[in-house]
């Protein structure tokens, strides 16, 4: 796992208060009770802090899954190779 992938997983686990093993690409909002509209906000703040980026509102709204988060962060120069 790349270091940024680990940071991403840790960010999701911390923000949603779930085990890291639960953070898979298919994890999406509404798929677990912990990821609601409030946790969504916490998650964005957590990822912005860990990757030192500031996302547009459209990207915040579009960040609907772990895979989508990685895709969006890629637009801000974060690599996951």
């Amino acid at each position: 796992m790349s270091s940024n992938q680990q940071v991403l997983v840790d960010g999701f686990a911390t923000a949603l208060a779930i085990p890291a093993e639960q953070v898979t690409d298919t994890l999406a909002y509404n798929s677990i009770p912990q990821w609601d509209s409030i946790a969504h906000m916490t998650l964005v703040a957590e990822l912005e802090s860990r990757f030192d980026v500031m996302m547009d509102t459209d990207d915040i709204i579009d960040m609907s899954s772990v895979a989508k988060a990685r895709e969006i962060l890629g637009k801000y120069g974060v690599t996951f190779d």
């Binding site: 909002y29 509404n30 990821w35 609601d36 509209s37 969504h40 964005v44 609907s64």
Partner: peptide, 11 residues
């Protein structure tokens, strides 16, 4: 729309 129920947009 379920796509936006768990989203910050709901605010």
């Amino acid at each position: 729309d379920l796509a936006y129920r768990g989203n910050i947009l709901a605010f």
